[in-house]
Design a protein around this nucleic acid. Structure first.
Lengths: 185, 185
DNA sequence: GTCTATATTCCGATAGAC
DNA sequence: GTCTATCGGAATATAGAC
C-alpha cells in the first residue's frame, strides 16, 4: 500500500474510533512511522483527509453493490449488514455516525461528501428491500425507503449503543432485523 | 439560574451540537459573558463538566419516569420519544450518541457515567414495552429488552442520520415506531 | 465568585533542505 | 516524497488579585 492509502486507512480508523476532533496529524504520522510534515504533503489539510476517507467508504459501497448486483436480496442485505459486523468487531462506529455527531464542527465540504454517501447507502438499501418484497423474500408494510431508514438507524446506533451495553446486544439487533424482514406480518 | 447550572446547560448544548472535543471552556465562557477562569472555578476540568452534563440528563430521565409513572404505557412511550423530538427541533443529537462516537477519546469516568445513563434508559423503556404488551396496547414478538434496543437505536440514529437526509425522515421514523408497536402482528 | 495574567502543551500548517 | 525546524494559534489549566 502506498503512503497516501495508508494515511487514509489510519485516518479512517482514528475517526471511527475516537472522532474527527480527537486525532491529529501527529497520531497518523506516528502510526505510520513517518513525520507530521509528510502527512501534510499528501493531504494539505485535515479536512482534505476526512474527505478522502469518506470517498474511500463511498468506493467500498460501490464495490459491494457491484459484487452483489446479481445475487438475491437476502445476500445483498447480508452484504450490507456485514459492513457493520466488521466494524463492530473492531469496536468502532461507522463513518456516518462518527461525522454526524460532530457535523457542526467540520467543514461544509465534509458535510457535503457525507451527504452523498448517505444518499447512496439509503438508495441501495431501499432497492434491496423493495426487490426482496417483490420476490416475497421480505415482508413489511411501510414504504421500502422507510424500512431502509429503520434498518440503517438500527445498525448505525447499535454500533454506538453497544459500546456501552456489550457486543451481544449488537448481534441481537442484527439478527432480529433479518428475522423480522423474513417473517410474514 | 445560577452560573453552575448555566455552564452545564451551555456545555450540554455544545457537546450535543458539535461534540465533546470540538468545544472549549472559552466557548462556554463567551456564551455566558464570563471568563474562562470562572468556568474553571465551577468545573476544574472539562471531564468534570461532561460528567455533570451526563448526570443532569440522568436526573431529567428520573423526573420523566416519576411524572409518567401512573400513566398508561402509550403515554410513557410518548414521553420517552418526546426527548428525541425536542432534541431534533434543535438539530442536535442525544448525549448518548454524541459521547458514544467519541467514547475512546474521553476519560473513563465519563464512560462510566454514560454507561449508567444507558442502563437506566434501557431499563425504563424495557419496562414501558413490557407493561404495554401485558395490557395489550403494544404488540411485538421479541423480548421487551430486544424491542427496547430496536426502538432506542432507531431514535438515537434518526437524530444523526436525518441531519443529512432531512427532518421529515425523523418524523417518519418516530411515527412508524409507534404505529408498529400498536399494530397486531 | 470573578477577574487578569500566564504557564504549558498541543495542533494545524508551512518553509526549505535533502 | 520525506525530513528538520518552526510559526502562529488555540486549548486546558492554574496563580493570585479583587
Amino acid at each position: 500500500m502506498n503512503t497516501r492509502d495508508a494515511i487514509i486507512k489510519v485516518g479512517d480508523e482514528l475517526i471511527r474510533d475516537r472522532g474527527f476532533n480527537a486525532f491529529s496529524f501527529y497520531d497518523v504520522s506516528k502510526a505510520l512511522g513517518i513525520k507530521n510534515a509528510s502527512v501534510h504533503y499528501h493531504f494539505p489539510t485535515k479536512t482534505a483527509l476526512a474527505i478522502a476517507v469518506v470517498q474511500q467508504h463511498s468506493r467500498l459501497v460501490d464495490e459491494l453493490m457491484q459484487k452483489t448486483a446479481a445475487k438475491d436480496p437476502l445476500v445483498k442485505l447480508q452484504a450490507f449488514l456485514s459492513i457493520y459486523t466488521y466494524t463492530k468487531a473492531e469496536n468502532k462506529v461507522c463513518i456516518v455516525g462518527s461525522l454526524a455527531t460532530d457535523l457542526h464542527s467540520v467543514d461544509g465540504s465534509i458535510q457535503q461528501e457525507l451527504k452523498l454517501l448517505v444518499e447512496k447507502i439509503l438508495h441501495w438499501v431501499t432497492g434491496i428491500l423493495e426487490e426482496g418484497r417483490n420476490k416475497k423474500i421480505f415482508h413489511f408494510d411501510t414504504s421500502a425507503r422507510t424500512r431502509a431508514l429503520l434498518v440503517i438507524t438500527n445498525m448505525l446506533a447499535a454500533l454506538q449503543l453497544t459500546r456501552l451495553t456489550g457486543e451481544k446486544d449488537f448481534k441481537l439487533v442484527k439478527e432480529t432485523i433479518i428475522k423480522e424482514l423474513k417473517n410474514k406480518q
